[in-house]
Amino acid sequence: MIPVEYYIVLSAILFAIGVAGVLIRRNALIIFMSIELMLNAANLAVVAFSSVLKTFSGQVFVFFVIAVAAAEVAVGLALIVEIFKAKHSIDVDQMSSLKG
């Protein structure tokens, strides 16, 4: 059996990639994908812990996270489509009409 540490290290790496993606990439869609990666890194960690600790509550949590992430996708993609219609670009660096 693969030790739980491996899963946790993998999930930490995925989370770090997600955070780096949000901070570095400028395309709204890719930022959004990076956020999903962060959430799924957390899911992986929870499932791994849950199987070691022999408790179901973690696995239930993962279902909640998946469901809520789906709700977020609906709103997020709608916003991206709206902005694309107006500007023909979803580059976050060009979203600069707000400044002070």
Binding site: I35, L39, A45, G76
Partner: peptide, 24 residues
């Protein structure tokens, strides 16, 4: 809306991962 969404979801990612570690 877009900025609020992206940074809000980013923040959610931290909360979920933090919860995962606390659970662990």
């Amino acid at each position: 809306g877009m900025k609020y969404f992206l940074l809000g979801a980013f923040a959610t990612g931290f909360v979920v991962y933090g919860t995962a570690l606390v659970f662990g």
